[in-house]
């Protein structure tokens, strides 16, 4: 600190101060504006990550997404999809695609965390896009589940079901159950809009609101149903099936016992 104070009368001090002020304004601005874009890109990738990622991409992904991820008839361009998209698609096991179908299915994850990180780093260099979210914003215990529940019902429940048990879309597509999805993947799905899911950018649902949604989902997942087994949370259909098969089944077993002759 002493050295700093000694140099404060240096001829370049004013310029340095100006630069610092500019940097600070810039940082605040970028922090503020990126909150409106996507969560600030806190995870910094090294150049090495991107290089490794490029190799992995060329070996595993380029056959569909094209060299340089510019897209082909078999797969879309990944320019500008952002690291979050890669982390979601690869990290949840949807990519690489196992087979053509209405939509990518979840399957065992094909890449290590390290490799996923490298792929994400590479794709992030191709164009600006949503970044992998910050740990802090993913902390479900900080969110308000009641607000999250309201947002979930308005924005998500029509596809994913009010209890997040999933639902059908057209022609074989579907909105998956969210049970067991990690906080990070839920967040990434909202900002990137994978497959046919709409994008919920930060202007639509702010990061804090997204945290509330995650808090709601984690709350209902952890607490389970107070009434006992939830029968898949599928609503009246599974209840009807249950009473016809199990309920009437037990009743019939008793009627047969009741009317049979004792030995």
């Amino acid at each position: 600190m002493k050295a700093l104070s000694q140099r404060r009368r240096h001829p370049l001090a004013a310029i340095a101060l100006l630069l610092m002020a500019l940097l600070m304004v810039g940082a605040i601005y970028s922090a503020a504006s990126s909150a409106n874009q996507a969560q600030a890109q806190t995870e910094s990738f090294s150049a090495n990550d991107a290089e490794e990622g490029e190799k992995l991409f060329a070996a595993n992904c380029a056959s569909c997404h094209g060299l340089g991820a510019s897209g082909s008839s078999a797969g879309p361009s990944l320019v500008g999809v952002g690291a979050a998209s890669v982390d979601f698609q690869v990290g949840s096991g949807r990519m690489p695609l196992q087979m053509d179908g209405p939509q990518a299915q979840v399957k065992p994850v094909q890449f290590t965390e390290e490799q996923t990180r490298q792929l994400a780093a590479y794709v992030a260099t191709l164009g600006a896009g949503p970044a992998i979210p910050d740990e802090e914003i993913l902390d479900a215990s900080e969110g308000d589940p009641a607000n999250g529940g309201e947002l979930f019902r308005v924005n998500c429940a029509m596809c994913h079901n009010a209890a997040a048990a999933g639902g059908a879309l057209t022609r074989g597509k579907f909105a998956p159950s969210l049970e067991g999805s990690s906080e990070k993947h839920i967040y990434e799905a909202m900002v990137t809009g994978p497959q046919n899911m709409p994008v919920f950018n930060d202007a639509n649902i702010s990061p804090e609101d997204k945290q509330d949604v995650i808090a709601f989902l984690k709350t209902i997942e952890e607490q389970g149903s107070p009434g006992g087994a939830d029968l898949g949370s599928l609503g009246p259909v599974s209840e009807g099936l249950f009473i016809w098969v199990a309920g009437l089944g037990v009743v019939i077993a008793f009627t047969v016992w009741l009317t049979s002759r004792s030995s």
Partner: peptide, 29 residues
């Protein structure tokens, strides 16, 4: 059955509001 199996978990659905809807909206059997 009532001891061990949930029926009509109204807490999942939330209050009625004309805007939202849940996937799998069906009547009783």
């Amino acid at each position: 059955i009532s001891a061990a199996f949930t029926i009509n978990p109204i807490w999942n659905y939330g209050p009625y509001d004309p805007s939202p809807v849940s996937a799998g909206t069906q009547p009783d059997w």
